[in-house]
């Protein structure tokens, strides 16, 4: 490295005040116009922008910066809340539509189930007056597997065999 390059690297440190010229460096600087010119440039650069720095009010800057960032955070939070509300609303709507669909397609079965339940209540009110055989017949009816009985349409009377018809008649007569 040439003496000029070595001195160039040292100039910043001396300008910072973290180093001093050695005797040899000072001698070179005094005798080298190129290095003196560079040194002047560095000293000039050190003074550039000093007024801008002096005029900068760090307290004001930090207040404005923090206020801006807080505003952004608030906006982001509202966007998030809005998003969640939107998702919740969409989910609620989807559930409503899905429920309505199910009622629409399975409405008849639903009403049958209600009627069935009401019918059961009526029958239950009469249970005390039934004899053993009649109660047994009802229990047999209740033992029908779910896949056969529940959820589907009640069997039409024409589908029942004689024994079953007899049981139904007996249960209705009390």
């Amino acid at each position: 490295m040439s003496p000029c390059a070595l001195l160039s690297d040292r100039m910043v440190l001396v300008a910072d005040g973290t180093a001093d010229w050695s005797a040899a460096e000072a001698e070179h600087l005094a005798s080298c116009p190129d290095c003196r010119e560079e040194w002047r440039l560095i000293q000039g650069a050190r003074r550039l922008g000093t007024e801008a720095a002096r005029r900068t009010d760090a307290g004001r800057v930090s207040r404005l910066v923090l206020a801006t960032l807080a505003g952004e955070r608030r906006r982001r939070r509202w966007v998030r809340v809005g998003g969640l509300v939107g998702i919740a609303a969409a989910a609620a709507l989807a559930i409503m539509v899905s429920t309505a669909d199910r009622r629409g397609s399975g409405g008849e079965a639903g009403s049958i189930a209600v009627v069935g339940a009401e019918g059961l209540q009526l029958r239950l009110a009469e249970l005390e007056s039934l004899n053993e055989a009649e109660l047994e017949a009802i229990l047999d009816g209740l033992d029908v597997p779910l896949s056969e009985g529940a959820g589907g349409a009640p069997p039409a009377l024409g589908d029942l065999d004689d024994t079953q018809l007899e049981r139904v008649l007996r249960s209705l007569e009390g």
Binding site: A45, L48, G49, T50, E51, A52, A53, R54, R55, T56, A58, G59, V61, S62, V65, L66, L69
Partner: peptide, 27 residues
């Protein structure tokens, strides 16, 4: 954040002014 701004704001302003930032816009 306040302390970081206090430490570096003036130095950043010097750099911006030296590097050609519009003097009216340095802040």
């Amino acid at each position: 954040a306040t302390e970081l701004v206090a430490r570096h704001a003036a130095v950043v302003a010097r750099f911006l002014a030296g590097a050609g930032g519009d003097p009216g816009e340095i802040d």
